[in-house]
């Protein structure tokens, strides 16, 4: 108390002293969070609510201009369920998400375990393996599209040379392979981030535990299963949920390689909603699909937050 009254002469009272006492002191934290809260309310909360509302209205470009929209209840949802493209997109989304999450987590864990050791040159490998994460997504997708080129693509050439295929194949142009071809790109792009998350978790595992396990003669696999995985399980789960969210929201890969085609063979719910909205300009229909995605993501996010809390309690 006395320290505050005996103010050093160098510091003059300024305008900011109004936050020191009374109302100013109480308002201070609110004032500091206010701009962020106002912006988030304006650009996130309000649009989300209005987006969900749109799902229950008949909205097209014309009604957007005139401003009168008809409430149609669940009709948009009924129309979506009746669309065979939706069923296809739903199946594709499941395949897309499962393949991406499983492969990215598996490869990410393997890479993290590989890179989590003091070996000469490990920094070089680590930097190189992070390259896909750093390359801008549009650039990466377009590069892969070029590599998949049906007539002069390097993927075809390498696979022929390795004896995997006999002749060049239009990977993105064939309904049987388009979704998987895009998935490969997405795994390539997403794995390094998973690796980073798991590497960070591995570095927090106390060395003494690993040493004790080695002393007891636990072999590599057993050490992994009984010692390492239980230690990083929460981070692993967090990485899984994040990968899930990022994969559901991965628009660029599919849009810039196939636009969901050919014949909807690589359509996921995101691109379907986009087409409903910005190709057919049936905004109500698009919002209905988006709302369903939203519900799925909210559930995933809730799980994610629970996991983070579980981790903090550990």
């Amino acid at each position: 108390m006395s320290a505050r009254t005996a103010r050093p002469s160098g510091l003059k009272p300024t305008w900011s002293s109004i936050f020191e006492t009374g109302l100013g002191a109480r308002a201070y934290p609110y004032l500091m969070v206010l701009p962020a809260v106002v912006i988030v309310l304006g650009v996130v909360v309000y649009p989300v609510l209005s987006g969900i509302m749109t799902a229950f209205y008949d909205v097209t470009l014309r009604s957007l201009n005139s401003g009168d929209m008809d409430f149609v209840g669940l009709r948009n949802f009924e129309r979506v369920f009746a669309d065979p493209n939706f069923v296809r997109a739903l199946q594709n989304t499941v395949v897309w998400v499962v393949l991406n999450v499983v492969a990215q987590l598996g490869l990410g864990l393997a890479l993290a375990l590989l890179l989590h050791r003091a070996m000469p040159g490990i920094g070089f490998f680590r930097s190189g393996i992070l390259v896909p994460w750093v390359v801008p997504s549009v650039v990466a997708v377009l590069t892969w599209r070029w590599m998949y080129d049906p007539s002069v693509g390097i993927v075809n050439e390498l696979l022929v040379k390795l004896g995997v295929i006999d002749a060049y194949h239009p990977w993105l142009g064939d309904t049987a392979t388009s979704l998987y071809a895009v998935t490969v790109e997405s795994i390539w792009k997403g794995t390094p981030f998973v690796m980073l998350l798991l590497l960070a978790a591995l570095q927090l595992v106390p060395k003494s535990i690993l040493e004790a396990a080695s002393m007891d003669g636990a072999s590599g696999w057993k050490k992994l299963w009984y010692v390492i995985l239980p230690q990083i399980r929460v981070s692993f789960a967090i990485a899984a949920v994040l990968t899930f969210i990022l994969t559901v929201n991965n628009f660029n890969a599919i849009w810039l390689m196939t636009e969901g085609g050919p014949l909807n063979s690589s359509e996921i719910l995101f691109t379907l909603a986009y087409k409903y909205g910005f190709k057919r300009f049936d905004l109500g229909l698009a919002s209905a699909v988006a709302t369903m995605l939203f519900v799925g993501l909210v559930v995933a996010t809730t799980v994610y937050l629970k996991l983070i809390q579980a981790r903090e309690e550990d």
Binding site: P47, S50, T54, N249, F251, G277, V289, L293, L297
Partner: peptide
């Protein structure tokens, strides 16, 4: 704030457009 980050962009696209 963290929830705000998780909203799918496709749900925001249409209101933003309007």
């Amino acid at each position: 704030m963290l929830y705000g980050q998780m909203f799918p962009p496709v749900l925001l696209l249409i209101p933003f457009y309007a």
